[in-house]
């Protein structure tokens, strides 16, 4: 997708909406799972609004239902630790105003980061971040409300294939960056390490381990010249 190079707002709105629909579906499933786990409605809604991190929320509800509240916190935070390097990469994008930083921080997600970094210039990055950030926050919370209201009538989102929508969307947003040789080598080797480590490590850690992909930059470049 080279949508990334198009900074036009209507195109951006359409792209964010495509992921937003999938996020509403998963948010609804979170709301329904929360109701099924006997969590108070206020707690389910508060989680989506205050934690605002899908993977960690599902993990936390599962562990709370299993009676391990401390594990719920630690497992959730381990999954969310990747937001720190996302914040580092987004640094300049959110601007220097404290209001923007305080509010923008809360809107940092995988998708908002990917939408922002896919843009070629700082103005486009800022626009993409806020559009995706606000849009997806509303989608996630609206989905959660829907899930709580409909509870048992929410179908399994897997039947709609939304679990394939997120990786495909992220990879599509990454493609322009991957045209840079060094970025491609770092990203692909990091991703390979993460996939290989996934069966052996707790959720969250394999993704962080992808940072070792940066080590390929220290390897000497492939050289073809031979001493003759």
């Amino acid at each position: 997708m080279r949508t990334a190079n198009r900074t036009a707002v209507p195109a951006l709105v359409r792209d964010v909406a495509a992921i937003g629909v999938a996020i509403v579906a998963v948010g609804a499933s979170f709301g329904a799972v929360g109701v099924a786990a006997d969590l108070p409605v206020a707690a389910i809604l508060a989680m989506s609004a205050l934690v605002y991190a899908g993977g960690a929320q599902f993990m936390a509800v599962g562990l709370l239902a299993a009676g391990s509240p401390v594990a719920a916190v630690f497992a959730g935070l381990l999954i969310n630790a990747r937001h720190l390097p996302f914040g580092l990469a987004l640094g300049g994008v959110l601007g220097r105003r404290w209001r923007d930083r305080l509010l923008g921080s809360h809107l940092i997600t995988d998708e908002a980061t990917a939408f922002a970094l896919a843009q070629p210039d700082p103005a486009g990055q800022r626009r993409a971040f806020w559009l995706a950030g606000v849009g997806l926050f509303l989608a996630w919370n609206a989905g959660t409300v829907l899930g709580v209201l409909l509870a048992s009538r929410v179908g399994d989102p897997l039947r709609l294939g939304v679990d394939a929508a997120f990786p495909a969307g992220l990879l599509a947003l990454l493609l322009p960056a991957l045209r840079d040789t060094q970025t491609r080598r770092v990203a692909l080797s990091g991703a390979a390490v993460a996939v290989a480590a996934t069966p052996f490590l707790p959720a969250g850690l394999p993704v962080l381990l992808a940072l070792v992909g940066l080590a390929v930059l220290t390897l000497p470049g492939r050289r073809r010249e031979r001493a003759c």
Partner: peptide, 11 residues
Amino acid sequence: MAAAALLAALA
């Protein structure tokens, strides 16, 4: 690049 590696790994 670090963010790209994390996002690729996540995907």
